[in-house]
């Protein structure tokens, strides 16, 4: 049995299809959602979303947001989400290096350090998801 999944960011509607299983990383751990899941709202942590549709699995990188499970559909309000094929791995790698350098330089500065850390995590997720697509090809 399928359910409707919509992924929206402030910039665009990223995804809108009928799917079988959705797996998202939330603050309380990774959860998988199937059709007829109990209504739920949860906070998403940066990570990888897996969407199973028929026999295909699609991967997406997400930087955070909310998942809202309604009786007939699931809405993900993402800060930013990218499909695996959209990810520019070279750019993500450069972002990781930049963030790493910044983290080392700004060890004393709490706010900048935290920001660099967050940027680093985002870059890691994007690289991970991006590489998955490469392996499949």
């Amino acid at each position: 049995m399928k359910f409707r999944l919509e992924i929206v960011t402030p910039e665009r509607l990223v995804y809108s299809e009928n799917v079988d299983v959705l797996t998202v990383p939330t603050v309380q751990g990774e959860i998988s959602i199937l059709a007829r899941h109990v209504p739920l709202v949860s906070i998403i942590t940066p990570g990888e979303i897996r969407i199973k549709k028929d026999d295909e699995i699609e991967y997406m990188a997400i930087t955070g947001g909310f998942v809202q499970v309604l009786p007939h559909k699931v809405i993900i309000l993402a800060d930013a989400a990218e499909r695996a094929e959209e990810i520019d791995i070279e750019r993500a790698m450069r972002a990781r290096e930049r963030a790493q350098k910044l983290m080392e330089e700004k060890r004393g500065d709490k706010i900048t350090h935290a920001e660099a850390m967050a940027a680093f995590q985002r870059a890691l997720v994007r690289i991970k998801v991006g590489q998955r697509k490469r392996k499949q090809k």
Partner: peptide, 21 residues
């Protein structure tokens, strides 16, 4: 309101994050 949601970790934490967004 139609459905009774479960909020994880809690309604106030969700609202906190949501307000920022």
């Amino acid at each position: 309101f139609l459905a009774q949601f479960i909020y994880e970790p809690s309604p106030s934490e969700v609202i906190e994050n949501l307000l920022v967004r």
